[in-house]
Design a protein around this nucleic acid. Structure first.
Length: 233
DNA sequence: AGCACA
């Protein structure tokens, strides 16, 4: 039996999912209507609608912030639009429009999974080098003998990791592929002006700690092992 | 009813 509120278990999202919409109007018209109904709740980044078999009668309205989405949901759920009460829930997924803004956007979901598998294999090779006695050049890299520039900072556990010694070409996508394979991964932050460093957030400090141990001194490129510490504060 | 974005 359908519960009174199916939306209860979906966490707030800046995108709302609208359905039970009238299906016999053009996508363009639908988006225009929705825009005029919803723009009063805040800035709309995008309205996504499709007339495909699966997607007709539904739309995704992407707001700039969650508060706008929440107000829109509360006030407009059940609103009679073109003779039908619209049903509104938070979207189950993060919209690409917002991922693009926060730097976590990736071309394709599937591509991400494939890449993750490759990275795991690369990781296994590389980690042995750091943990063992020699690297490929025959230099000694024993654990107690790490060059000071590769020494992680000694800071108390934190759910956010501070990653440094990254190559300049390293971008958020690469880091996401690497870190998102660990449980509790949330997001990567990079600052354009500060090359070579990144912050990676996890659910809590045990999750971040695990990722740190696993990826410590992982080489994104042949000569640059990343150095991972807990972030300050 | 149906949760996408190339």
């Amino acid at each position: 039996m359908a519960s009174i509120e199916d939306s209860v278990d979906i966490p707030p999202n800046q995108t709302i999912y609208v359905n039970n919409l009238y299906e016999k109007i053009s996508k363009k018209k639908l988006r225009e209507h929705l825009y005029s109904l919803f723009s009063k709740y805040g800035q709309i980044l995008e309205i996504e609608a499709s007339k495909s078999l699966k997607m007709r009668g539904q739309a995704f309205i992407v707001f700039k912030d969650i508060t706008s989405a929440s107000n829109a949901l509360r006030e407009m759920n059940g609103f009679n639009f073109l003779d039908r009460p619209m049903k509104i829930q938070y979207s189950k997924n993060k919209s690409d429009a917002v991922s693009k803004l926060d730097g976590t956007y990736m071309e394709k979901k599937r591509q991400r999974e494939e890449n993750n598998e490759k990275k795991i294999n690369i990781k296994k090779q590389d980690r042995k080098v750091t943990g063992g006695q020699k690297n490929k050049n025959g230099e000694t890299l024993s654990v107690g003998n790490i060059p000071s520039n590769l020494q992680p900072r000694d800071l108390p556990p934190n759910k956010t990791l501070f990653v440094e010694n990254l190559p300049d070409k390293c971008d958020p996508m690469m880091l996401e592929m690497l870190f998102s394979q660990f449980p509790g991964y949330k997001e990567v932050h990079m600052v354009e002006s500060k090359k070579g460093i990144a912050f990676v957030e996890f659910q809590d400090e045990s999750k971040s700690g695990l990722a740190m141990q696993s990826l410590q001194h992982f080489k994104v490129t042949q000569e640059k092992p990343m150095v991972i510490s807990f972030a300050k504060q």
